[in-house]
Amino acid sequence: MSIVARLEGKRLRPDLELAALVAEAAGDGAVVSFTGIARPRSSGGEAVDVLVLEHHPTLTQKSLEDIAGAAAERFDVTHVRVVHRFGEVPAGQPIVFAGAASPHRRSAFDAADYLMDRLKTEAIFWKRETGEAGSRWIEPTETDYSDRERWD
């Protein structure tokens, strides 16, 4: 079992994260990963240049570790990897990588799904879009919260 939970201040490389996870999972049967990308448009359709992710000096890292650890405990997985950007992320660039390896695919799919539902609503970040319409704080939608509740 390995658990990686990392804050990344510079460009996130999902290709390298996936390669590392696949290498770790050489003895397993399945790897599932999700990459979240900064959208170039707001929910209202305005152009977004940059997504700014503020974070807390201690609680943010701990929140990533807690979520990754909970996924490792809950599902039949062998490796969990969560890497999350902070700072300024230009539209089109990756924000988050969440992946899991397992002997069988269903557990890996479930773990990746669980990781993202919790990251969206519980990882300690504050997101702000800046662009055409100025600057706007982004918070989870009701759908995000109800997706999270599926796992209770």
Partner: peptide, 10 residues
């Protein structure tokens, strides 16, 4: 004391 508004990752 710190006050944290609603968080949002991902």
């Amino acid at each position: 004391i710190e006050f944290l508004p609603p968080v949002s990752g991902g």
